[in-house]
Nucleic acid binder design. Sequence first.
DNA 1: GATAATAAATGTAATTTATACATTAATTTT
DNA 2: AAAATTAATGTATAAATTACATTTATTATC
Lengths: 245, 245
Amino acid sequence: MYLNSLNQSNFMSYENKDFYAPQDKMYVATDCIIFGFEDGRLKLLVFKRRVEPLMGEWSLIGSFVKLNEDVDEAAQRVLEEITGLKNIFMEQLKSYGAANRDPGYRCVSIGQYALIRINDYDKELVEKHGAHWYDIDDLPDLVLDHNQMVIDALEKLKLKARYQPLGFELLPEKFTIPQLQQLYEAIYQKQLDARNFRKKALSNKVLIKLEEKDKTSSRRGAFLYKFDDKTYQRLIQSGYNFEIS
Amino acid sequence: MYLNSLNQSNFMSYENKDFYAPQDKMYVATDCIIFGFEDGRLKLLVFKRRVEPLMGEWSLIGSFVKLNEDVDEAAQRVLEEITGLKNIFMEQLKSYGAANRDPGYRCVSIGQYALIRINDYDKELVEKHGAHWYDIDDLPDLVLDHNQMVIDALEKLKLKARYQPLGFELLPEKFTIPQLQQLYEAIYQKQLDARNFRKKALSNKVLIKLEEKDKTSSRRGAFLYKFDDKTYQRLIQSGYNFEIS
DNA sequence: GATAATAAATGTAATTTATACATTAATTTT
DNA sequence: AAAATTAATGTATAAATTACATTTATTATC
């Protein structure tokens, strides 16, 4: 994946189609690196590109930023068009500004990563847009510099997840400790000790234990928890240093 | 400086008092948040703005990104024009994309923070451009969203300095441990214990003790050290986790 | 209804890291 | 020779991290 030879052939196919490249004008776009979590695996939402050049190739979803629109608004707009969801966690990754990064346009793209809760409702909407949830370590080649965006976003997710409760954005509202552990194992890409993980996770005092159990993955069942955002906000207000594994 | 890459008609109408705001076109700019360190204090390099609107106000230095230029190249270009220095440490902070952030243009700016070694040579060049090194906790109001950029950059510096040897970019090549401590105290904005700091700093094994002493700040003099980038690179290659205070 | 199977839940000891703290050393100035 | 000044150093205590094995709750099967 992500080979030079592939980029080259992408470029050729663009040339063959005589696509007009208006390089006399600056564009600003935003591309969304959309993460999800399902079946113990971290996933990325990718799309079949619908326009030339590179039509039909896998791509992140994005849009040009409109003249009267904030960059962050544009990203929210794109996300809502695709998933139907508002108020999704999203944060700037970085901007991608190489002069030749897009053969079609002189376009600076602001990468934004989003964390969403995969569920059947989203999936349906997503399918309408020719999208697919790929396993993070089984991604196809993406157009332009989109693979690099994913690499950078993963790196950032790894760094931030430790000190900010990002993980909970990816889990359903109610989750078990083993599920939480699986998530962090997927993000950090390493195995964690179950006893130590549980200890650490609970030591932050921001997980509320519920009476219900989830029995989908064991006979005994595991207690469900939810993240207590109010307490979390209060804690960090007073200087608390959240950390998980 | 900021308007060098504009066409003349825009420039003229912008320059007189009821300036025309060409919001029919997207611009991309880059602004540099330039940090230095001198006399135990963290400093920021700011400039008198030379064009309307807001002519004469303090501002970060920046430029529009040219059509055939990488965003990062543009930032290096600006920095070189001002300081005469190449290969300065610089890294993307984030992009600033609010639709109304600049009353003159629809302009997305990529903030980049730079760390430079203040010395007399730089200062001379800098003065030519109507610039001034301000103490970081005694900054004037800056134009547009530039104060926010500084706040964000400081926050990022605080976070990154701990796990990446950024600090050495701000110090002269040879420095003493007390100087290094002063720097970290300025970045973290808190006092550090001299014994513990020294222990921690030296524990990373990337400081080379020289035979020379610096006697500018004590009768006894303090030994000079330099940062051993080769060893540092080797260590992080093999998974070492650099940390300072 | 007893047994087997399975993942969840729990505790402790050893090691490492972080913190708090006071004295002596080297040098110059008077 | 004495005074002044900053640099340099060590240790004991507390806190955090790591490594590691058994029991528990429940369902499925015989």
